[in-house]
Nucleic acid binder design. Sequence first.
DNA 1: AATACCAAAACTGTATACATGATTGACGGA
DNA 2: TCCGTCAATCATGTATACAGTTTTGGTATT
Lengths: 245, 245
Amino acid sequence: MTRPSPRTDIAHEALKQAILERALQPGTKLPEDEIGAHFGMSRTLVRAVLAKLQSEGLVDARPKRTAIVAQPTLAEARDVFEVRRGLEAQAVDLVIKRWKPSFGAELEGLVREEDAARERHEEHVAGRLGGEFHIRLAKLSGNVLLERYMSELVTRCSLILAVYGSPHSHDHSGPNEHIEIIAALRAGDAAKAIALMDAHMSAVERRAMHDTDPAGAALGDVLARYAGAIAAPAGAIPLKRKRTR
Amino acid sequence: MTRPSPRTDIAHEALKQAILERALQPGTKLPEDEIGAHFGMSRTLVRAVLAKLQSEGLVDARPKRTAIVAQPTLAEARDVFEVRRGLEAQAVDLVIKRWKPSFGAELEGLVREEDAARERHEEHVAGRLGGEFHIRLAKLSGNVLLERYMSELVTRCSLILAVYGSPHSHDHSGPNEHIEIIAALRAGDAAKAIALMDAHMSAVERRAMHDTDPAGAALGDVLARYAGAIAAPAGAIPLKRKRTR
DNA sequence: AATACCAAAACTGTATACATGATTGACGGA
DNA sequence: TCCGTCAATCATGTATACAGTTTTGGTATT
């Protein structure tokens, strides 16, 4: 499928997967040395990989501190979903305009693969294929830039889902919704397709965000996550900030 | 306005400006050594700068060859404008939803600045302010990601305009169109604002793309630009490609 | 006169070294 | 017991060196 021959691509892909599968939890430090040692490459290259991951929103690398796995805030999550909804609508619109029967088959193929993976309880694979559906749709729009943006957005959404979604509530109704969207596309019904896509996005977003508070989440985790995002309450004691360990 | 203190930011900004003002023409080689010497920094840093410029679409840096100023193809230009139209519409939509009187003043301020600059015949400044209008609008949407994407798109459009637009036909009707959009925003008329914005985008695009063929353009330039974009005609003599000097 | 070939020059790919700044944990004072 | 201080440690910022590839210009060949 891909040719990640260059070592740097391998490292990039590996880290990306690890982050999206939550093997590396948000906030985890990513020292250049250690990563370099692990992948057998120098810091020079690791640096490039981290820079790319940062531009994709998966890593937070601030000026003079060790890079860490990104901890998207609720505000960021909202922004990502918002932009994504807009671009998904545009993608649907464009795809319908240049629709060919082969498109339907192509998309259905992906849905089937996803179903199969879920059947086999390979949730991570299924999740990836679920995202792949949207990227493929963007590709079918014929707009390369749109495809690139969509890829990035799907990736970011995956991280958000990994962070805020309950551990195993992986996108479950996805396939069915995808099937309905394909039907609308085939019928050339842009309005309906967009509406379905929007509903789909809302469902995913709700699934991601609504699961946030329930008992499951560890208090410490949640606090840590909010810590950076919320400005100190106006009247709060100006407690000389203790170092953040 | 900004604090481009870090040398790397200075170089980035300088190159960006130079490219957008067409001081560095598309295709111009950008050797790491030379740039480093010029800005007094090592190749390590130059590399990072070039990578960033590449991600912004201003530079084309392929695996083992010297980076060059990007030469957007017509297809790429089309894609950029297409995506931009979509995001502009979304921005308008969001801005209207959270409209505050101060927004109008803010946007009008930019338009006035642009007018003033044009009055002074500072076309480059005026052009930049024209783009700034759209970035500011995106910012007012309250969506940081949308703002980031819009910045990138505006930049890319500027390059396209620089490449395909006739040398001095800088965005001329811009200000008026911007004023009309502000009026629609103030009235809370989303449909009208989006329509105006779309017309505005079409105007800019037409101005950029339609000027392509007229006598002015040097034949060699045009051919060179198309060379990479067009697949060899089906029956063409499989001329062993001579090196491209 | 055009083409193929080849070695010098021009650059990039990558690792490594050194300088500098952050982080940590222990120690001592209030 | 709680802070604040300080030095050792850890990790990044940046330059530079060396290896390997591409590009270039000239020369020999047809």
